[in-house]
Simulated scan of single mutants.
Amino acid sequence: MRRPLLAAGLAALCVAVGVPAHAWASTSGTAATPAVVNMEATVLAAQIDPRRADHTLTPGAKDSVLAVEQALEALNLLDPQWVDGYFGTTTVAAYAAYQSSLGYSGLAANGLPGATSLTKLGQSRFTVTNKIGPGAQVQRDGYVVDARAQAMLTAAERLLGYALTLEQGSYNPGGDPTSAGTHDGGGVVDISVTGMTAAKRTAVARALRKVGFAAWVRDPSQGDWPWHIHAAAINDTDLSSQAQHQIGDYYLGLNGLANRGPDDGPQVPIHTWEQYQRGQ
């Protein structure tokens, strides 16, 4: 799901949008002024862009993604035709290869830029702002979650005025096979709805969405599972590839299931945890 962009066209585009053409420094010999990469926007694009049927760029991410792609090209990890501000599957694969070159593996080489790898990539090329990360792994209701997801759950509970109970946590590879790998990484939880009315289930999903989760009420007609609420934290850099796809689908108005049906959850403005904290 990429579109080719000729090298000459890219150079002109970089000038037009005011992004330093770092990728051309090796051939031109000219010094480039370091760019600024917004990590929040870049990670978001890496979740949404691969799920698009077209090549629309993620708003606010173009300049940051271009700078990252130019750095990957300079390392011979990304062909110039893909240096276009679109963080699609080819760029995700190139970034994963870069992470692997640093000695990372597993979730640390999932193709989502992490703060450490992104900072290393940007040396002499760009500075990184709006850094984000999952934080330490902690226990909740007998399950493992990361600190960022825990903070998000606590914020949702404050909105609701009551506690939530997990029935599946994160970092659970080989767990419930019906989860299709979404819980293999961080940022993803299933919440018990035992004793909840339909209205209360919807209220919980709405609160989770408000604080930055892609959240849906799941019912037995959709799969081989009982009623529950599935929630994936947007921009959690420990997300498994399957959970990354759910986030992208959520932004595109889909239900996060394999059938890619329309979103059936409560409609709220979509934003990340960091945006919620800033009051955006």
Results as ranks from 00 to 15, higher is better:
233 A>G: 03
86 Y>M: 06
119 T>V: 07
265 G>E: 02
70 Q>D: 09
47 Q>M: 10
216 W>C: 04
120 K>A: 11
257 L>C: 05
201 R>N: 04
9 G>P: 07
43 V>N: 04
275 Q>L: 02
183 H>S: 07
259 N>G: 12
95 Y>S: 00
72 L>Y: 09
77 L>Y: 03
39 M>C: 08
58 T>M: 11
217 V>C: 11
147 A>H: 09
123 Q>Y: 12
187 G>Q: 12
169 G>S: 09
99 Q>F: 00
262 P>W: 09
126 F>N: 05
116 T>I: 13
8 A>M: 06
239 L>C: 10
148 R>S: 07
50 P>A: 04
149 A>Y: 00
117 S>Q: 04
116 T>G: 06
217 V>K: 07
26 S>H: 11
233 A>H: 02
121 L>K: 06
228 H>I: 06
177 P>H: 11
104 Y>C: 02
122 G>D: 01
224 D>L: 14
69 E>R: 02
153 L>F: 09
180 A>L: 15
240 S>P: 05
254 L>N: 10
103 G>Q: 10
70 Q>H: 08
215 A>C: 01
30 T>M: 13
245 H>Y: 11
250 Y>L: 03
153 L>E: 06
200 K>R: 14
126 F>P: 05
160 L>E: 03
146 D>N: 15
261 G>L: 00
49 D>V: 05
270 I>M: 10
127 T>W: 03
217 V>E: 08
151 A>K: 08
230 H>K: 12
269 P>N: 04
212 G>F: 01
43 V>T: 04
85 G>C: 04
101 S>E: 05
149 A>V: 13
196 M>F: 15
265 G>V: 02
184 D>A: 09
222 Q>S: 11
88 G>M: 02
130 N>R: 10
79 D>G: 00
149 A>P: 05
238 D>E: 11
212 G>M: 00
20 P>I: 01
52 R>A: 03
100 S>E: 13
123 Q>C: 02
263 D>W: 06
57 L>C: 07
245 H>W: 09
145 V>I: 15
54 D>F: 05
250 Y>H: 11
49 D>T: 03
221 S>A: 15
144 V>D: 08
104 Y>T: 03
171 Y>C: 02
258 A>R: 12
51 R>T: 08
191 I>F: 06
192 S>I: 07
271 H>F: 01
163 A>N: 14
50 P>N: 03
253 G>W: 04
3 R>T: 12
115 A>R: 13
180 A>C: 10
257 L>A: 13
268 V>G: 01
121 L>P: 07
10 L>N: 11
8 A>W: 04
32 A>E: 08
99 Q>G: 00
80 P>N: 01
174 G>L: 01
206 R>T: 15
124 S>F: 14
171 Y>L: 02
197 T>M: 05
7 A>Q: 14
276 Y>H: 12
26 S>D: 15
143 Y>T: 07
266 P>Q: 10
99 Q>P: 02
260 R>A: 13
113 P>H: 03
80 P>G: 01
103 G>P: 00
241 S>R: 11
218 R>Q: 14
235 N>S: 13
86 Y>G: 03
142 G>S: 05
260 R>D: 12
241 S>L: 13
176 D>A: 14
128 V>M: 09
159 L>R: 11
113 P>F: 06
261 G>H: 09
200 K>E: 15
151 A>I: 05
204 V>S: 06
167 E>L: 14
238 D>V: 01
138 V>I: 14
211 V>M: 08
131 K>I: 12
